[in-house]
């Protein structure tokens, strides 16, 4: 028991220290004002691309349910892009850029918790970006969100579960990054693209071809986004997913997340071993 507590304390310390390091690396390149602008412009631009696409086709009819569906899904999908990148890119940053990975490995910490801690800064920044994007949507674009009608317990639970799912995916990609070159930022970007396509982030999954819907249903992020939308908008637009109650969705999400977590752990450990065995753990690939 004492050992478990001691280990938990050590792991928490690793997460806290890595979180502080991640925050410093994210933010200390400029002054807070410029950093705030930088943190807001990119997510807003990404949402506005979809807003303009929507306006072009519907000639500005923002009252349609689909508009809110697209906007909310896209806003929360920022977690996928940023946290996935935040966790998996650590390998390249520490290996190629700062060339510190070997020192981290020989320090008395567990890499798993270090990676999680480094992702925390991105989580904080993304949470701010999501809040600003949602506020912009409600105030400027008149997205029909009633703040008093939001199911906050479900929203908080969903966001926490989503962060856990994305962290598992990030750790999986971090494992893959250990044996790939510098250009594997494209891997993270591409995987985010896969989830963007398949998880119904910006349209109901029913519009996808049937074979792709099978993939959608196997991914926990699909259920996560559905739960987030239900908690904020109070309804579902997907005929496939609307058949499930909130509780059923939570159960399916928990089951698929458990499989993902085990798979992610196995992939990470296996590839990490290969990287150490074949000396790829500190390779330099900045060509």
């Amino acid at each position: 028991m004492t050992n478990i507590l001691k280990r938990a304390k050590e792991n928490l310390r690793t997460i806290r220290t890595a979180g502080k390091l991640g925050w410093a690396m994210e933010s200390n390149w400029t002054d807070p004002f410029l950093f705030a602008i930088y943190s807001i412009v990119r997510p807003l631009a990404s949402s506005l691309i979809l807003v303009v696409m929507y306006y072009v086709v519907t000639r500005g009819k923002t009252g349609m349910d689909l508009f809110a569906y697209i906007y909310v899904g896209n806003a929360f999908f920022m977690y996928v892009i940023n946290v996935l990148f935040g966790v998996s890119w650590v390998i390249h940053e520490d290996r190629d850029h700062y060339q510190m990975i070997r020192y981290i490995y020989i320090s008395p910490i567990r890499m798993y918790y270090y990676l999680f801690g480094r992702g925390i800064a991105k989580m904080v920044l993304t949470t701010v970006a999501v809040i600003i994007t949602m506020a912009f949507g409600m105030l400027v674009l008149k997205i029909p969100v009633n703040l008093l009608a939001i199911n906050y317990p479900l929203l908080l639970f969903s966001v926490a579960a989503g962060i856990f799912i994305i962290t598992c995916l990030g750790i999986l990609l971090a494992g893959v990054s250990m044996v790939t070159a510098h250009h594997s930022y494209a891997l993270t970007e591409g995987m985010a693209g896969l989830f963007y396509l398949a998880c119904g982030a910006i349209y109901p999954i029913d519009i996808l071809p049937v074979w792709l819907q099978y993939l959608s249903k196997a991914l926990p992020l699909t259920y996560w986004l559905e739960l987030v939308r239900r908690s904020i908008l109070g309804k579902s637009l997907s005929p496939t997913l609307s058949g499930y109650s909130d509780f059923q969705l939570i159960l399916i999400m928990a089951a698929t997340t458990l499989i993902l977590a085990l798979f992610s752990h196995w992939v990470y450990r296996s590839i990490e071993y290969i990287a150490r065995k074949y000396g790829k753990i500190d390779q330099l690939t900045s060509y």
């Binding site: 979809l50 696409m53 929507y54 086709v57 519907t58 689909l66 697209i70 494209a186 891997l187 970007e189 591409g190 995987m191 985010a192 693209g193 896969l194 963007y196 396509l197 982030a201 910006i202 349209y203 109901p204 519009i207 996808l208």
Partner: peptide, 17 residues
């Protein structure tokens, strides 16, 4: 293979609309 996926997502937005 991967870059086509996010492009396809935008295509499906137009299809949904």
């Amino acid at each position: 293979l991967l870059p086509i996926l996010s492009t396809a997502a935008y295509v499906y937005v137009y299809k949904a609309l």
